[in-house]
């Protein structure tokens, strides 16, 4: 079954046409990388998937629920679709451990000892078990982002959305976060949608690369076609040559 299906989706901010005629299917277990210049609609697209941004036209089916249907409670989708943000959005009033344990406790009613044990396991996995009792403000950006990933994983989601997870980080912190994401992509059957400019990540663990510009999907290629062959779209070729040179 497909995890995510866009059928002719349109999204407007007032008069601004932010997403134009989006058609996209992501199969369960796939890792899809979304790239494109800023303002191209990548973040908007990923935010529609868990209902943070409503769509105005078309059909958007995530994990079997139709988000275009007003009667669909986006909360049902969010329980199975986690999101990692550019600016982490960790709960400022809670410790690291509380950040990870809150949603499983409230939403899934996971018993406390099991919850704590799983949270510590996740912290260990992202290499920050020693920070369990720290507050987010005491941590570096890279550490906060790894905690945010652990917080999403604690819900045992079927799908994880990453909205420019490394764009706000110092260069030396980026690898720590990317390594955690690569581990998830390799070791789990989770569906991942990643908005990023990290081409190394796309090459290593991506299955598909999608190039967006001006609210449209211009390329939807397998990783091999995109990196080793040539994207058929001129704009995508230009974009690619710039980031590759940059690298």
């Amino acid at each position: 079954m497909s995890m995510i299906e866009f059928h002719d989706v349109q999204k407007y901010y007032g008069d601004f046409h932010a997403l134009k005629n989006i058609n996209l299917t992501v199969e369960a277990g796939e890792t899809v990388v979304l790239i494109g210049p800023s303002g191209s609609g990548k973040s908007t697209l990923i935010r529609t998937i868990n209902g943070l941004e409503p769509i105005q036209k078309g059909q958007l089916i995530v994990n079997g629920y139709d988000l275009a249907d007003k009667k669909t409670d986006p909360n049902k989708i969010r329980k199975n679709v986690g999101m990692v943000f550019q600016h982490f959005n960790l709960y400022a009033n809670k410790t690291v451990l509380e950040n990870i344990m809150l949603a499983p406790k409230i939403v899934l009613k996971r018993p406390d000892d099991e919850n704590r044990e799983f949270a510590m396991k996740l912290l260990d996995k992202v290499g920050l078990a020693n920070k369990a009792d720290s507050y987010p403000r005491q941590l570096s950006g890279g550490q906060q982002q790894r905690i945010a990933i652990a917080r999403s994983l604690a819900m045992k989601p079927k799908c994880l959305l990453f909205d420019e997870p490394t764009s706000a980080l110092d260069p030396e912190m980026i690898d720590d976060v990317l390594n955690v994401m690569k581990d998830i992509a390799r070791d789990s059957d989770m569906t991942m949608l990643v908005v990023t400019h990290e081409m190394g990540f796309a090459r290593e663990v991506g299955d598909r690369v999608i190039f967006m510009a001006d609210g449209e999907i211009l390329e939807d290629d397998s990783k091999e076609t995109f990196f080793d062959g040539q994207p058929s779209n001129e704009r995508a070729r230009q974009f690619l040559s710039k980031i590759i040179v940059h690298k």
Binding site: L52, R78, F85, Y91, A92, N93, V107
Partner: peptide, 30 residues
């Protein structure tokens, strides 16, 4: 309170009211 706090909580599976109660209001009252 940073709107990201509400977005983070809702994306984590909490409802609007749960996000308010556990995340936003404690910070707002401070």
């Amino acid at each position: 309170v940073d709107p990201g706090q509400m977005e983070g909580a809702m994306s984590n599976g909490l409802t609007f009211w749960q996000s308010m109660r556990y995340v936003v209001l404690p910070q707002a009252f401070k």
